[in-house]
Design a protein around this nucleic acid. Structure first.
Lengths: 190, 190
DNA sequence: ACAAGGTTAAGAAATAGGCTTAACCTAAGT
DNA sequence: ACTTAGGTTAAGCCTATTTCTTAACCTTGT
């Protein structure tokens, strides 16, 4: 059962009771996503929190030149959403697209709110999940303002070795904020 | 009463009941902090969440050349902490320093945990606070990987006009990842 | 098996941003 | 109020980093 994977994921933070598991089950929808398929497009409102069962996604913005800039990746057992749009209900400026054929579980906002209100444990769990993500992204900010592209690339490899092997270098280049050609140069050297 | 300012702050998310207010009061400590005084130094463990009643702080890392890189500012009614160190109990690599004479309220970890466990409302409130911070920092990452220093500076002014007036430009330069001299050039132009 | 997309290459060109020095100005602390 | 440290602007030089362009080759998905 795919839901078990999610329950397992939550259990890393706090194990769920049977009631909570059942409530969760009823409010989560499984979805298969093809490679290159979008689960969020610019000017849509982000309606779900998405949990990745298998596969891999990227979230990115597009600048005035049409260049994509990867903000985040999400692979197995990770969450992805444009939280800003999700909360405000405003149109997103971002895209979320499958890099690989993927399977996900999605929770719609009203369902998530239901869970928060009836089972505060979910507040706790998501507080911790977001805190962890916050720490991660804060380190990235420090990297960005204090390091060269070369350092950023090697830090990326150390921090996400699995992703580094799995992803096309174009995607990594976009994530660290350089062109694919320049990334190729960086790799050539070492 | 300084605690009222914090209660007011929480009330923006969810109003507190009397019990919660009292529990909070007993677990929060007021502290005056002089300009240049540290509330966190490298190699110390971050023991508190700090809420700024008045004044202003910066959190920064120092690179191998001894250059400071500002990760975050916090002025009135904002929280500051090295969440990573706070959670893991490991030594921080960061500094938190008062830019102005300040007054803060601090909560120690055991007290915060007590509040979380006995009043799940605090889980909820901090979940939302961290989510908001996450959105903010995620926008900053997108800026960093897709914009020039010039654009980053002007975005900073738009997003934090109060801070932009209040802070020395050296601090802003450090925040957007450039030297003070180069920031001066940017300002000259427009 | 084909087509699309990813990877490496290499050279030229741009430029963004650093470094240095210095003079001036502002504001903090005594 | 005075002193001094620290912030600000200036100007010029400099160069490392990165983009751009083109291209050929290689992988991978369908």
């Amino acid at each position: 059962m795919p839901i078990d994977q999610l329950i397992e994921h939550f259990a890393q933070y706090i194990p769920l009771r049977e009631i909570e598991k059942n409530e969760l089950k009823q409010r989560v929808v499984e979805k298969k996503v093809k490679r290159r398929q979008f689960i969020l497009q610019q000017n849509d409102v982000c309606k779900h929190y998405t949990f990745v069962l298998s596969g891999c996604f990227k979230m990115y913005g597009v600048d005035d030149n049409g260049t994509e800039h990867n903000i985040q990746f999400a692979a197995e057992n990770e969450w992805i959403a444009d939280i800003g749009s999700f909360h405000s209900g405003k149109e997103s400026r971002l895209y979320i697209e499958a890099i690989e054929p993927s399977v996900v579980l999605q929770i719609e906002k009203p369902n998530l709110i239901y869970l928060y209100h009836n089972h505060p444990k979910f507040d706790r769990i998501f507080r911790v999940i977001v805190e962890e993500k916050f720490i991660e992204i804060q380190n990235r900010v420090l990297q960005n303002i204090s390091s060269t592209a070369d350092e950023r690339y090697h830090t990326f490899r150390e921090q996400y070795p699995q992703l580094a092997n799995r992803l096309p270098n174009t995607q990594i280049a976009s994530y660290i904020g350089i062109t694919p050609e320049f990334l190729s140069k960086i790799r050539r050297v070492k």
